[in-house]
Design a binder for these strands. Structure first.
Lengths: 337, 337
DNA sequence: TTGAAAGCGCTAACAA
DNA sequence: TTGTTAGCGCTTTCAA
């Protein structure tokens, strides 16, 4: 019994089929260059041995790993689940393997991982980057990179355009009679944070509503829950949160405090993550097809790899829409302190 | 301007640091073999060039890719996200890269991917396998493999032991006065399906309760929702579902039909996925630390890789417990038809 | 402490 | 149509 342990190499197959390694290589990757009978012999031998060519050895020669890296700040966030799913699906469809990396919200880790990805894969999709734009530009100059929910000079990107829907949300609140609204902010390092705040404030001002930013909070359920105490006693009759995780936490926190949603306070989230339609009241939120964003970003990356260097700066935008559920209702200003 | 495109190699660093490539290699992987000053020089040069060693080239020599493959039947299921998270965390902690693969519930794809994983990575964690036990044994003989929520002869595994908690759930229902309960089955190909059904039925029989299996359904929200119509008109006063996705769907479906939970029907899920505590009523379910299972499986895999071939057959079990929330209540037999 | 050289599995000129 | 050969980036003897 020969040790079965070692993975068979091209040489084993060559020996078994009584041809040279080069012929095996050709039979497998460009069979039209090899006599039909030979191809069959090689295929048979390869099948018997359970041979499959090593991507690393191939990479060494071709420079292609047929792998894509997906770099995310925090796999914990359900918002990214959809992104992962979309990216995975598209990558697999294009014949690429997907490598998943979590940077734990650290810019340093992000940069290191991107550098490592450079020769572990053919390109990377980078979601929710914490890196400064200049760093992204540099990285992208050396390595095919597509950004999601972030833009940087000269780097292709896919952004879920939540801003118009957020404006719509403010319109909705206005129509419902709200005159004082709050915005529960996200992390300062998030590219979208100032943009969301600005879109909301602008819309509020346009309507002559007052709009207050309730600090900068982590994008978590816990942060939303913690904010409930403040929201319960303020004059705002409606709160828009940076994301759904916060909204869900806030919803729960308010319930614990005996504050009724939407009767006393209306809540609008953002992302439409799994579970946003499960709460009672179901969450009014901005739904943005994160899965599609993952697909588009991966497709853009694959296209770029296929067409060689195509450094066209393409910033794709996927639309988002306001999903009105039950966490928003008529202003309660009369009933509140 | 030299073409900045090409990834720097060990030779570039060697040239920049004015040492040989061998020294660079040593300075990076076994610095104690190199003079302190030289190490510094190499590190500096490497940093400047943004160098990072190619895992593939390294693999060629060492036979180690420092990558682990996580193979899952369906990334769509939130249950697997916890698994992914745990595995990812553990892999990263051990210095491994994580490759994520979705087999789309296909046994063929699963086998192919596992074969490909064989030389794309050092080992694989395989969750919710659809492959026959014999195939798993063969695969595992040639390639380090750890199973999650599945057992097969000679293959190490981590199983979330939901069975005792399911028995507990039946006990709970009994105490609440339920005498007729239903089990909404999962996919036939799922290893756990017959085991869950058996545990539930046995417990029910022990209590002298009637217990009926409501067919074999996909593990999805849609399936749960579709089952609502039947549940609404049957004599069962409580339903245990194969998983939370079904339970969530059922909950929603019953609500649509005007059937009150838990007043008219009690529901018990399984998995405690994200969102299970968000519904109203919040879902009573079996919580099994999928994240921990992912960690344990990955750790077992890493241990095995480190200790060389350690073919001890280890079947780890992570406990699960019944989380009693609000979807379970006193039997409504008096009030129902 | 460092360098030279061989070789890992595979592919692609080139030669036959 | 097939084989020979060289070399990809890196590690690791072996020698200096």
């Amino acid at each position: 019994m020969a040790p079965d342990r070692a993975t068979p190499t091209i040489h084993d197959v060559a020996a078994a089929a009584e041809v040279s390694p080069a012929t095996v290589s050709r039979a497998l990757s460009r069979p039209q260059l090899v006599a039909e009978a030979t191809v069959q012999r090689v295929l048979l031998a390869a099948g018997k041995l359970g041979y499959s060519p090593s991507p690393q050895a191939r990479w060494l020669h071709t420079g292609k790993s047929n792998a894509l890296t997906l770099v995310l700040p925090d796999i914990t966030n359900p918002f990214f689940f959809d992104l992962i799913r979309g990216a995975q699906h598209e990558a697999a469809g294009a014949g690429y393997t997907q490598v998943l990396v979590d940077t734990e919200e650290s810019a340093d880790q992000e940069r290191d991982q991107l550098i490592a990805a450079r020769n572990a894969s053919d390109g990377a999709v980078l979601g929710g980057s914490r890196l400064p734009g200049a760093a992204l530009g540099e990285l992208a100059a050396k390595f095919p990179l597509v950004l999601v929910n972030r833009q940087a000079r000269g780097v292709p990107s896919v952004v879920i355009d939540t801003l118009p829907a957020l404006t719509e949300a403010v319109d909705l609140l206005f129509r419902l009679g709200h005159r004082r609204i709050g915005y529960l902010g996200g992390p300062e390092s998030a590219w979208f944070e100032p943009r969301r705040w600005q879109a909301i404030r602008t819309a509020a001002v346009d309507h002559g509503m007052s709009c207050r930013r309730l600090g900068s909070q982590p994008p978590t359920r816990a942060a939303g829950e913690a904010a409930a105490a403040e929201v319960a006693v303020t004059e705002e009759t409606a709160v828009i949160t940076y994301n759904d995780l916060q909204a869900l936490g806030l919803l729960h926190g308010l319930e614990e405090l005996g504050v009724s949603v939407p009767d006393q306070v209306s809540i609008v989230g953002c992302d439409d993550i799994f579970g946003a339609d499960l709460t009672k009241p179901a969450l009014t939120t901005v739904s943005g097809a994160a899965e599609q964003a993952g697909e588009l970003a991966t497709r853009a990356l694959v296209d770029r790899l296929r067409t060689g260097e195509a450094p066209r700066r393409v910033n794709q935008v996927v639309p988002a829409k306001l999903i009105i559920r039950n966490s928003t209702g008529p202003s309660s200003v009369a009933r509140r302190g």
